[in-house]
């Protein structure tokens, strides 16, 4: 047995908690190792010193005070017996900020997914039912290019209307 292992086992040796095999190994090591014998003696002294310090006695009337507080607690909270279905563990322990963040990210992802799906569906419906512009017609209108026709009909001066006017080429000016 090595000295570092012996020194770790000394605490349980003194408490008589070591299994027989380890105890015999340690005793065999101690017989041959004066350094560990000294360590064991020092440990005994240290533990003796620690244990020589008493804790003050339990304050008088402690039990009575606890019982008074228990009575008050029951008055406030109702009887001890409260048979309630146990809520799910995540609810019982509260929701952490990480869980809230995860839920928000999941919800945002779902929303984006639904919007993209909706847009794709609209696009495919349009391309199948509306004639595509012919080659000699230049489609420069942002409504058609970017499929943002849902912005038409917005009030004058509103952001969508300004956006459309900026991104669309006035066909009268261009041609």
């Amino acid at each position: 047995m090595r000295c570092d292992r012996a020194q770790i086992l000394m605490d349980r040796y003194l408490a008589e908690e070591l299994p027989a095999v380890e105890r015999e190994d340690l005793e065999s090591h101690l017989r041959e190792c004066p350094g560990c014998q000294q360590q064991l003696a020092q440990l005994q002294t240290l533990l003796g010193t620690l244990r020589s310090v008493p804790a003050p006695p339990v304050p008088q009337g402690f039990v009575g005070r606890v019982m008074v507080m228990a009575g008050q607690e029951i008055e406030r909270q109702g009887p001890l017996v409260q048979v309630r279905p146990r809520p799910a563990s995540w609810w019982r322990h509260g929701v952490t900020p990480q869980q809230i963040g995860f839920a928000a990210a999941l919800a945002a992802g779902l929303l984006v997914g639904v919007m993209l799906g909706h847009q794709t569906w609209q696009h495919s419906a349009r391309t199948s039912t509306i004639d595509r512009p012919t080659a000699n017609v230049q489609v420069t209108d942002a409504e058609n290019v970017y499929l943002i026709d849902y912005l038409t009909g917005t009030p004058r001066g509103s952001f969508p209307e300004i956006y459309l006017s900026l991104t669309s080429v006035d066909s009268d000016q261009e041609f």
Partner: peptide, 21 residues
């Protein structure tokens, strides 16, 4: 105690007051 027996609670407190204190 879980059944609402306060005297059982008192016994527990008496038995373990030293431990907790």
């Amino acid at each position: 105690v879980a059944e609402g027996d306060l005297s059982a609670f008192e016994q527990l407190v008496r038995r373990h007051q030293g431990t907790a204190w």
